[in-house]
Design a protein around this nucleic acid. Structure first.
Lengths: 140, 140
DNA sequence: TTGCTCCTCACGTCACGTGAGGTGGC
DNA sequence: TTGCTCCTCACGTCACGTGAGGTGGC
């Protein structure tokens, strides 16, 4: 459920912000806690601490979501970090968006190439499959 | 050109077998010598030695070719090693071929899945690309 | 005391890349 | 002596997996 904030370091008596534990996030997004800690190690997420324990805010959760989306699209964690950083600034954004456009296009060209390689591999493997089947049927 | 065989350890005075240096093979197949040594470390190729230097036979060259083909198809070096080993026996081949068929089918299903993932990623990235372009055009 | 959740090292995996430092034979 | 080819460690990379060993609070 809700985590308890240390009143000493939050001067504002606002509504308690919604927080998550590492296990909750791991469960929600289907990744291991080890992976989430690894992203932190790489500077992608920086949750607050309650003693040793990590406390994730909505913003941290959003960043994690973006990290996983970036990974699905095949970006390296270094790329993702760069893009998250420029996502944050919101200033001088035009240049940053142009850089992002470059990255997106690079990724697209890699993906198109990979698609061709996979199609070639599939064709070769299906051919091999047919040959093995034929050989197994014929022999003995 | 041709390497010199040590006459002491080849009892047969046959035609000198054709051999290759590691650099020749690396050049021919477009891989690094480090990679070829790595495959040896993993037990995929076992060239003879002339002192410290590696001497590759036609058979070694053939195995390297199969290794690289396996890699192109996306098999792990462990898989490739297994398949090379059964390629060698030639006996009890029927069962071995069945195992190979299983591996090929597994690989095919992985590849089909990867194809879908890549198609999804391409669609998502192209969409993102359009949005960034639109935003860049419109703003200022 | 037991059980659960969370933590910090730190080594292992996979397929090499990349020096560092050295040898043999033209 | 210089240059070239080949060699052996051995650490680095990338994205984590997998123990080992320990803590806090119900």
């Amino acid at each position: 459920m809700g985590a308890r904030a240390i009143s000493l370091d939050t001067a504002t008596p606002d509504q308690a912000e919604e927080t998550y534990t590492i296990t909750e996030l791991a469960g929600e997004f289907g990744v291991t806690t080890r992976a989430i800690r690894f992203y932190e190690d790489k500077g992608l997420i920086s949750p607050r601490r309650n003693g040793l324990n990590r406390v994730y805010s909505r913003r941290d959760r959003g960043r994690l979501k973006l990290v996983l989306r970036g990974k699905r699209l095949g970006f390296s964690l270094a790329d993702i970090r760069e893009m998250l950083d420029l996502y944050d600034v919101g200033d001088g954004q035009r240049e940053q968006l142009k850089l992002m456009l470059v990255k997106v296009r690079e990724r697209l060209s890699v993906l198109h190439r990979q698609r061709e390689d996979i199609d070639d591999a599939i064709a070769e493997l299906e051919d091999g499959q047919r040959q093995i089947e034929k050989y197994l049927k014929q022999k003995r």
